[in-house]
């Protein structure tokens, strides 16, 4: 059976929303999974794998729900494996390469603080499935944040080298933050309907939490004023194509098989 075109699928606001949230989770889960067998020590290797599993698990929930909403026989794997770069809707920060451990942890802190605000708001969604996924995710994020916060303090207030690496990491990532708080018209309609979260309203809290943690970590809040966005419109960094090429290789090479 030929699945319907993905353009049609993305036309529906709620589907679009679920898929974007799934894409955020999957791309970051993918990046974290790259640490498996490469961590700075064995315990941390296992912990990063745990966090990766949580994010991939979320992606599966969002995609499965999207597939159900669509009702055309598509499944989570069709959504993950059969869309190209322009059809992915994740925030750019999630697809960026891992860099060193400081970049990975700085990104994680940025995302974890964001996720705490986002999923706690999403638990109030009128859509019971989204609320249920959010209720599960918020528990995971609480643990993720405990880890990333601790790590950023260790790195920021550790050695001279770790401090410098951590500061560089935040400087490098800072311009990818603004899009996380920018709303599209379609998404605002979903907020009106009580389904989605108004992300722009999360910004102030996010900023004050980050300021507090970075201060404790003896790090400066980057003050450079730059912003790169486009993820929710499918305008990505050049990195995503490679991520997808690697991830989708088997499905693309041997189409339509069971695995």
């Amino acid at each position: 059976m030929n699945p319907p075109s993905t353009t049609a699928l993305l036309d529906t606001p709620l589907l679009n929303y679920c898929i974007a949230l799934g894409d955020d989770s999957l791309t970051l889960g993918h990046r974290l999974s790259e640490w498996c067998r490469n961590g700075p020590f064995l315990e941390e290797d296992l912990a990063l794998t745990n966090v990766s599993l949580d994010f991939i698990g979320r992606a599966r929930l969002f995609y499965s729900y999207a597939a159900k909403l669509e009702g055309k026989g598509r499944d989570e794997d069709d959504i993950a494996y059969l869309r190209d770069c322009r059809e992915y809707r994740n925030f750019l920060i999630n697809e960026l390469p891992n860099g060193d451990f400081a970049v990975t942890m700085a990104r994680q802190l940025i995302v974890d603080v964001y996720d705490m605000g986002f999923f706690s708001a999403l638990t109030q969604s009128q859509d019971p499935t989204l609320a249920a996924i959010a209720a599960k995710a918020i528990k995971e994020s609480r643990y993720h944040l405990r880890r990333s916060e601790e790590w950023i303090k260790r790195l920021g207030d550790g050695t001279e080298e770790s401090h410098e690496r951590a500061q560089n990491a935040f400087d490098q990532l800072w311009g990818y933050v603004p899009e996380m708080f920018e709303m599209s018209d379609v998404e605002l309609q979903l907020v009106e309907a009580g389904m989605a979260v108004d992300r722009s309203a999360l910004k102030a809290n996010w900023e004050s939490t980050m300021q507090l943690i970075l201060k404790q970590a003896t790090l400066d809040v980057p003050n450079e004023n730059w912003a790169i966005g486009g993820g929710r419109d499918g305008i990505h960094t050049e990195h995503l194509g490679y991520l997808l090429a690697e991830m989708q290789f088997l499905q693309r090479t041997y189409p339509g098989q069971q695995w």
Binding site: S33, C36, E43, L46, Y63, D77, W259
Partner: peptide, 26 residues
């Protein structure tokens, strides 16, 4: 093969398995 696992299910099973192996090592 983690990043190239053919389905999301196979990916999480593989990740969890490798995590088990690391845990056995510990």
């Amino acid at each position: 093969w983690i990043t190239r696992a053919p389905t999301l299910y196979r990916k999480v099973v593989l990740l969890a398995k490798i995590q088990d192996e690391g845990g056995h090592g510990l």
